[in-house]
């Protein structure tokens, strides 16, 4: 096993600190507003592990669950996987997955719910609804992307990885937006100067490989202040981005090499495999959300453990509370 040096300057070393951060946001919100839970609407709700995660969030006192989906199937799932459902949970019957998502989105628009959570539906079908001009939640100026925060055993800090689940093959402009989204999520968590690595197979710039060229342009864009003082560097291979030892061996200089907080991948195939390798074989814990809109969408991977669903809920609820507390100040 590679060993990574401990570093005291990092704000987060584990996801339990993320839960503390969420708690603080709720306290801040409660200074100006009546204290209440974050109303999370899941659609379509018939998914055992997701509901278990939801139940855990409910037990910890920060989630108020609203379940939209096929009622019969929801009850079957609840019975089969023994979800500790209580009478406080609201269940809204919408038999078809797509109509369930439409209903959930309308609850958010009408202020009946605060945050949306992906249920048993493919990400693309979910976002087809959310980006729909009539039923959707997206403002056309917004660009949404998925961001994962991972706690990897034996690694000294949380790693932020984007985009592993939403944008398939982003172009140069879209990559800038993906990077900005990840940076602003980090900023919301209090990581003010994250180091951003653009991942590739190699660190040399072969002009025949478009990925390397694009990432070099983004690095240069960053050098000229394109990301408002946040350093973005690439192309970097994964080991150079995260291992100071590897960076030193290959004589890679720069602020990011060996110290990356945020990893940006060039397409969904890369991101998805990387994320899933860490969560399955790497036993990493993770929180996953889609950001870019006014509020995050809780976006666990389709086979995520209840533990990881809970982390994702905590992150989204914290962002909601922070936004509400901030609004009051303006």
């Amino acid at each position: 096993m590679k060993s990574f040096p401990k570093d005291k300057e990092h704000r987060y070393t584990s996801l339990s600190q993320l839960h503390q951060w969420t708690h603080q946001q709720f306290l801040r919100r409660a200074q100006t507003k009546p204290d209440r839970r974050c109303r999370v609407v899941i659609a379509p709700a018939q998914d055992g592990p997701f509901l278990h995660g939801m139940a855990e969030g409910y037990a910890r006192g920060f989630v108020e669950p609203i379940l939209v989906g096929n009622e019969r199937q929801i009850h079957r799932v609840v019975d089969e996987s023994q979800v500790p459902l209580t009478s406080d949970w609201e269940i809204i019957h919408e038999p078809e997955p797509i109509s369930a998502v439409i209903r959930a989105a309308s609850l958010i628009k009408e202020g009946e719910a605060d945050v949306l959570m992906r249920g048993r539906i493919l990400v693309y079908d979910l976002f087809k609804v959310l980006f729909h001009p009539e039923h959707g939640l997206r403002d056309r100026r917004q660009y949404w992307s998925q961001v994962g925060i991972l706690q990897i055993p034996n690694f000294p800090r949380l790693l932020i990885i984007s985009d592993c689940g939403l944008n398939v093959t982003p172009d140069l402009h879209q990559k800038v937006r993906i990077i900005e989204n990840a940076i602003s999520l980090a900023a919301a968590l209090g990581i003010s100067k994250p180091k951003v690595a653009l991942l590739a197979a190699v660190e040399a710039v072969y002009l025949k490989m478009p990925v390397l060229v694009e990432e070099s342009i983004l690095a240069h864009f960053s050098e000229r202040g394109g990301f408002k003082g946040v350093v973005v560097d690439g192309p970097l291979s994964l080991d150079l981005a995260i291992s100071p030892e590897a960076a030193e061996k290959k004589k890679m200089t720069g602020e990011v090499a060996g110290k990356a907080d945020i990893l940006i991948v060039n397409n969904i195939y890369v991101g998805n495999s990387l994320y899933k390798s860490l969560v399955t074989l790497g036993r990493a814990e993770s929180a996953s959300v889609a950001v870019g809109g006014d509020l995050p969408v809780v976006l666990p991977s389709r086979s995520e453990s209840p533990q990881n669903v809970l982390h994702s809920l905590a992150l989204a609820a914290g962002l909601w509370a922070k936004r509400e507390a901030g609004n009051e100040k303006d």
Binding site: A200, A201, S243, L274, L281
Partner: peptide, 22 residues
């Protein structure tokens, strides 16, 4: 065997398993 869609995917996947999983 897993067959990756691009050199980046194969490379980053292998390095992830080497660096993070040992």
């Amino acid at each position: 065997v897993v067959v990756a869609s691009s050199i980046e995917e194969g490379n980053i996947l292998a390095k992830s398993l080497v660096n993070f999983v040992g």
